[in-house]
Amino acid sequence: MAMTSPNSRALERYKSAVTTATSVLGAAMLLRRVLADVLPGTALGALLLLPPASARRHAVLIEEFDGALHNRVFLAAKAYVSTLLAAAPSVPLMKASLPRGAGAEHVLLALRPGTAVVDVFDGAKVTWRLSRKHDGGAGRRRTTEDAREVFKLSFDAEHKDMVLGSYLPAVMARVEAMSQEQRQTKLYSNEWGKWRTVRLRNASTFATVAMDDALRQAVVDDLDRFLTRKEYYRQTGRAWKRGYLIHGPPGTGKSSLVAAISNHLHFDVYDLDVGSVRSNTELRKLLIRMKNRSILLVEDVDCALATAPRREATGSSDGGNPVSKNHKHHHAATLPS
């Protein structure tokens, strides 16, 4: 009777286990191959053949702040998700707010942290999920002020190029168009070397202003052409701006025409009182502090030019200039870039 040592018995058990594992692995590979041929589109085939869902999903994190500044992509995502929530029946709990100065029709809907909404773009589903993260070290007590919101945009890996190359740019363009449509134009006036803002209450449009029809259409066409020719101005080495001289007695609609231009372009209006400007340096600062895509309005420009030499001659710098008797009420409107 042959005796076997403990080492020999352990070796036999190891060989048996390897043989069993090999046969199981071979059977699994064979089953996988059969399912791929026979059941390629079934749920069972997808369950056995595809990698885990986490491996098939990619995500983009969009944080609320970019360093110390607000992240513009986050702000755009917040506005875009609000439009999705207005039409989404599957989100049971949402937040609602009204931005300062906005009308009741501009209520902004928002996700609660931990909730999500699904969007479809070119047949692909993407998911927007809002969460919160806390700043500070591990030993620091977490407060509400430390919490910052983060959007997680998730999608199937196969749609990565589409999301980064088409979807996100389309979201940004959509939000930009929405902001232009909903934007309330503002009126700025200079006071002590600074711009003070008030809401532009003149609601005149080209549909309501009293103008010759041919002249009205010519002005509208010229404004639209100006907007689309920024690249032309750059190529020709000229500043992207347009100037108009509006003249006539009081009550003939000069201010209403400027308001109609502002409402048509969605440009703010900077009403410059040249008589209150105390120096060329102050004027230069005012012009530098104007926002892009705005209108510079110089009222009574003929009077301002007539009194300017007198101010220089007397050395006056307090802006208290007498009004010229030849008051012709000229307005100059310029559309700076």
Rank of each mutant, 00 (worst) to 15 (best):
A2Y: 13
P6N: 00
N7S: 13
R13L: 08
V18K: 07
T19H: 10
T20R: 09
S23F: 11
A27M: 10
A27C: 03
A27W: 13
A28V: 13
D37F: 07
L39W: 01
L39S: 13
T42C: 14
A43Y: 04
A46I: 14
S54A: 15
A55Q: 10
R57N: 04
V60F: 06
L61D: 14
L61H: 14
E63Q: 10
E63Y: 15
E63F: 13
G67F: 12
R72H: 04
Y80K: 05
V81N: 05
S82I: 00
T83F: 01
L85M: 02
A86P: 00
A87M: 06
P89C: 02
S90D: 09
P92Q: 08
K95Q: 04
A96E: 04
A96C: 11
A96V: 15
P99W: 00
R100V: 13
R100D: 09
G101P: 04
V107S: 01
L109R: 11
L111A: 02
L111S: 00
A116P: 06
D119Y: 05
V120A: 09
G123C: 06
A124V: 01
K125V: 12
R132P: 01
K133W: 13
H134L: 09
G136M: 03
G137F: 14
A138M: 00
R148M: 10
K152E: 14
L153Y: 07
F155E: 11
F155C: 00
D156S: 04
D161E: 15
L164M: 12
G165C: 02
G165W: 00
V171I: 07
A173Y: 07
E176V: 14
A177F: 01
A177M: 04
S179D: 10
S179P: 04
Q180T: 13
Q180G: 07
Q182S: 12
R183P: 11
R183E: 05
S189N: 07
E191G: 11
G193Q: 05
W195K: 03
R196C: 11
R196D: 15
R199D: 12
S204R: 11
T205F: 01
F206Q: 05
A218L: 05
V219E: 02
D222K: 09
L223C: 07
F226D: 03
T228C: 12
K230L: 10
R234M: 08
T236Q: 13
R238K: 06
R238I: 03
R238T: 03
W240M: 05
K241F: 02
I246Q: 09
G253V: 03
K254E: 11
K254L: 04
A259M: 02
A259I: 07
I261S: 01
N263Y: 03
L272N: 12
D273A: 09
D273G: 12
V274Q: 05
G275R: 12
S276V: 10
N280L: 14
I288G: 05
R289I: 10
K291C: 08
R293W: 08
I295G: 02
V298A: 12
E299W: 06
V301Y: 15
A304T: 07
T307S: 05
P309H: 03
R310S: 08
T314H: 10
G320D: 14
K325C: 08
N326F: 10
K328V: 15
H329K: 06
H330T: 12
H330A: 14
H330G: 10
A333L: 04
A333R: 03
T334P: 00
T334M: 06
S337D: 12
